[in-house]
Simulated scan of single mutants.
Amino acid sequence: MAGELFPFLHLLVLLLLTSAGFSDPDPTQDFCIPNTGSTPVDLTQLATYPCKNPTNTSADDFIFSGARSPGKFSKETGFSGLSVTTSLFPALHTLGMSFARADFEPGGVNPPHYHPRATETALVVEGIVYSGFVDSGGRIFAKVITVGEVMVFPKAMVHFQMNVGKSPAVIFGSFNSENPGVVRIPATVFGAGIKEGLLEKAFGLSKEELERLQRKFGPKEGEI
């Protein structure tokens, strides 16, 4: 009996050891600022960049000042979002984290979206925000939160935010990935070029309604 089990146990051990190697390795050095010269960091090519020589780094390399004020607001949503990943802040490389600043005009919304590679925590630093996510079973978890409160959005869960106060609102989000990615639901569904017949049946839309949504969420002139 023991002889019959040995091949099975041997295979099981091999599978366990192999699967253990699938997780991200821990950093082998204190930090690795991509040495790109004067060119911006290309997130798709991070692994090809050498690390900047630590003797040539200074405190300035580890400071980002671009989140002091909001970016440009969308006229349609009243929302401004700044995603701070390695492309803007190279010192984040290999540290497994990034962050974002989100600003809302009164009534402004951050439309449903998700981050395929990260869990997010969202801290309200100003205003009153209706915040929530929907799990894979279709259950919604949502609540109005205010200054000092934090909500967590589990990895790859669709989530959203809306300023329900009468003054501007500000949120700072943090991610457990240096490149969390973002999939915006309206633009992905109606602006990516999915076959019209499929969308008409899936959402019960008329051709005219679908064309209106495609114009609204499709790429604008000059955009890629």
Rank of each mutant, 00 (worst) to 15 (best):
L16R: 04
S136I: 03
S23I: 06
D42P: 14
V109K: 06
G108T: 11
A20M: 07
S23F: 12
F22C: 10
I63S: 13
L14I: 08
A2R: 12
T55Q: 13
N176K: 09
K195Q: 14
S177V: 13
P50Q: 14
K52H: 14
V84H: 11
E221Q: 14
V189G: 00
K72E: 11
V164M: 08
D135V: 03
T86W: 02
A118V: 03
S131G: 08
F217M: 02
S206W: 02
A192S: 14
V144K: 05
E4P: 02
G193H: 05
L9Y: 07
E211Q: 08
A91D: 05
S177N: 14
D30P: 04
V182R: 01
F153W: 12
K195E: 15
P27Y: 07
K155W: 07
G66D: 11
F104E: 02
V164E: 11
S167Y: 07
G81V: 00
D135T: 06
L11I: 09
H115Y: 02
F64A: 08
D24M: 05
T39K: 12
T119K: 00
V164W: 05
S83M: 13
I224C: 04
E178R: 12
P40A: 14
D103W: 08
E208W: 05
H10G: 15
I194V: 07
I33F: 02
P112C: 08
A47N: 13
C51Q: 12
M157A: 07
Y114N: 02
V147E: 15
G137E: 09
G191Q: 03
T85Y: 06
A67P: 01
I140A: 06
S74H: 07
P54T: 15
K52A: 15
C51F: 13
Y49S: 11
E126Q: 08
H113S: 02
K155M: 13
